[in-house]
Write a protein that binds this DNA or RNA. Structure first.
Lengths: 134, 134
DNA sequence: ATAATTCCTATAAAATCAGTGGGAATATAA
DNA sequence: TTATATTCCCACTGATTTTATAGGAATTAT
């Protein structure tokens, strides 16, 4: 029950992007240095964020990454849903739940409730707010 | 961001104990078989639950485990706090947080809020309620 | 004594996490 | 057109954690 380094790095990069503002793409080399994130590690994470549609990339010289949406429309929940392989509290409570006990499991409703509570809270934190204190 | 098998097993055993009621100790062999939990695995977990004071053990023949408190006074939060090595959303948000960024970290308040939300929700589920549907 | 139990320690297999390396593809600028 | 800066892709490694498994010692009721 923990957020991975991957998730924390992703959040930090996204906040850094939001803090920069503007539409000029930011090269990952700079972002990684600023945020003290291992370059090659965050490289892979960026690919996932692109695929998820949260950022877009510009290849070649003077390229980099930029947000696809205004910072107030991107939440921590959006980002963590991409990076956390299992965003759910318990794997058995996900939507592809093939747990044989599902019908009678006394804890399933609790996991569902926990998922909803986490999601609801993380949705309240947008990049706009998160980047404010930077 | 997930609850481990260890945590789920612990919950199931505790619910099974609550469902039995009474003060007669339940042998782990039975509980493990009922709940389809690997015996040797749950054995180690029981030791931790005993140390945490949630159950007590009776050794020797006709021995077993029983709850130390009435089921309405033991919550999912109590149990998961024992089994989950890191109960916090992010390790940097725990009480022994030695993260150098802590002072300026824009996400720390969010992790704290997430921790509180999770804890609050898990506290609402007592063994009494959880065992009702069994 | 015997049998049923918890308790203790060590080990092993599997999975996940975190990070690294090399280079191909793409685009800008000189 | 050549050099340079960037994203993109794929494979691999090392460390750690998770999920068990094994063997037996200690304890207690019958």
């Amino acid at each position: 029950m923990i957020v991975s380094a991957k998730g924390r790095y992703a959040l930090r990069v996204m906040i850094a992007l939001a803090a920069r503002g503007g539409t000029k793409p930011a090269p990952l080399k700079e972002l990684a240095a600023e945020e003290e994130i291992p370059y090659k590690f965050i490289e892979g994470i960026m690919t996932e964020l692109v695929k998820a549609g949260l950022v877009e990339s510009v290849r070649g010289k003077n390229g980099g990454y930029r947000l696809t949406r205004p910072p107030e429309e991107c939440t921590a929940a959006d980002i963590l849903r991409v990076t956390e392989s299992s965003f759910a509290a318990a794997e058995c409570a996900g939507k592809d739940a093939d747990c044989p006990r599902a019908q009678t499991c006394p804890t399933l409703p609790m996991w569902r409730a926990l998922d909803e509570a986490m999601e609801a809270l993380l949705k309240k934190y947008t990049l706009l707010e998160l980047a404010k204190s930077v």
